[in-house]
Computed example of a mutant assay.
Amino acid sequence: MIVTVTLNPAIDISYRVNNFKINKGHRVENGIKTAGGKGLNVSRVLKQLGENPLCLGFLGGQNGEWIKRHIGNEGLEESFTQIREETRTCLAFLDEENSTQTELMEKGPMVAEEDINNFSEKYKHLLEEATMVIASGSLPAGLSVDFYREIAEKAKESNVPFILDTSGISLELAIEGKPFLIKPNKDEICQFAKRSDLSFQEMIDVAREICNKGVDYVLISLGADGAVFVGSDTTLRAEIPVISVVNPVGSGDSMVAGMAFALHNHYDIEECLKWACACGISNALQETTGKIDPELVGDLLTKIKVTPL
């Protein structure tokens, strides 16, 4: 059983606004409302690939109830921990005319110590039957900044591969917990290295330093430039076909799902990288976040070039 962890989910509402301007009113059509959160996007894609993940995290208030109903209608199983405060709402304004996307993301609710203990107890029991854990996204208030490190360590103690997609200080501290795989993008790997920019080789060097700290693999997503995959004795580059992006939101989450799916099914490492990229591309070609076309994924697998470095 694959367990996904979304600690700070949200109701995501996206609006298409041509020629979006600050300090100006805009009339828009009704927004597209979805149950958001990076881990939920991962769960959706895994479901479309034939897996049946269990979703964990924190939900509260009417927004939390809406998310539960929504993901239930999508066929996703969940065991969220109920909290007192309201789950957050996030807004996105998509301007196709200027190729921009502006997001307003609420910080999220305060999670009480009792709720954290309830989650931790549930997580501990699920590790007895979990075959993989995937944790994604930001931390809500109330959780310590090293919470990902804590749950990564617990997974490692149970010999369960732990995949992590987060950023900032949470990522830095989580590396101490020796997760199986992390998936930063270029900005996040630069942030980790405390540099404004890194060359391709410098990104590889930073990834190798991370692997020397006990992380098995680092998958760096590079947008239109594909991806680089680094392990202690492996460095692979993935080159992807040129596409006309429809909606890039959730492509990183889809990459995580594709990689997790392939790893879970014991594909060789080059195939795993192809699956990660194919799912990320497929999501970018869909209107809806966290959605792929499995038939298109199969076609893309033949068009992605993976080169050992």
Rank of each mutant, 00 (worst) to 15 (best):
Phe93Arg: 06
Leu46Lys: 11
Leu171Ala: 10
Pro248Gln: 05
Lys194Asp: 08
Ile151Ala: 04
Leu198Gly: 07
Met110Cys: 12
Ser43Gln: 04
Ile189Lys: 11
Gln191Cys: 14
Gln62Arg: 13
Ala130Asn: 02
Gln62Thr: 14
Val145Met: 12
His266Phe: 10
His264Met: 12
Val5Trp: 00
Gly50His: 06
Glu85His: 06
Gln48Met: 12
Leu126Gly: 04
Leu273His: 01
Gly258Val: 08
Ile292Glu: 01
Thr302Asn: 11
Ser99Gln: 15
Thr34Ile: 15
Lys183Asp: 00
Ser79Arg: 15
Lys124Val: 08
Leu54Asn: 06
Ser43Phe: 00
Met132Leu: 13
Tyr267Ser: 12
Leu181Ser: 03
Asp165Thr: 03
Glu153Pro: 05
Gly25Val: 15
Val5Gly: 05
Asn283Val: 10
Ile240His: 04
His26Thr: 08
Leu143Gln: 02
Gly108His: 02
Val28Leu: 07
Ser170Tyr: 03
Gln191Ser: 15
Val17Ser: 04
Gly36Ile: 06
Asp197Ile: 14
Ala174Thr: 03
Ala141Glu: 12
Asn265Ala: 08
Ser232Lys: 15
Ile22Asn: 11
Lys156Arg: 15
Phe261Pro: 07
Ile22Gly: 09
Met110Gly: 10
Cys279Phe: 04
Met259Cys: 14
Cys190Ser: 12
Ala135Thr: 02
Ala260Asp: 00
Glu74Asn: 09
Ser232Asp: 11
Glu29Tyr: 11
Cys211Met: 03
Ala193Val: 08
Val5Thr: 04
Leu59Cys: 05
Glu209Asn: 14
Val245Phe: 02
Trp66Ser: 09
Leu40Gln: 02
Leu222Cys: 06
Asn118His: 13
Val230Glu: 00
Gln201Asn: 14
Ala276Ile: 05
Gly223Pro: 01
Ile240Ala: 10
Ile210Arg: 01
Ile71Val: 12
Ile13Val: 14
Tyr267Glu: 11
Cys279Ile: 08
Arg16Met: 13
Ile134Asn: 04
Asp187Phe: 15
Ile281Asp: 01
Asp12Ser: 05
Gly108Ile: 08
Phe192His: 09
Leu54Val: 08
Ile304Asp: 03
Asn73Ala: 13
Ala92Val: 03
Ser136Asn: 07
Pro184Glu: 00
Glu74Asp: 07
Leu143Asp: 00
Asp253Ile: 08
Asp268His: 14
Thr34Asn: 14
Leu219Gln: 05
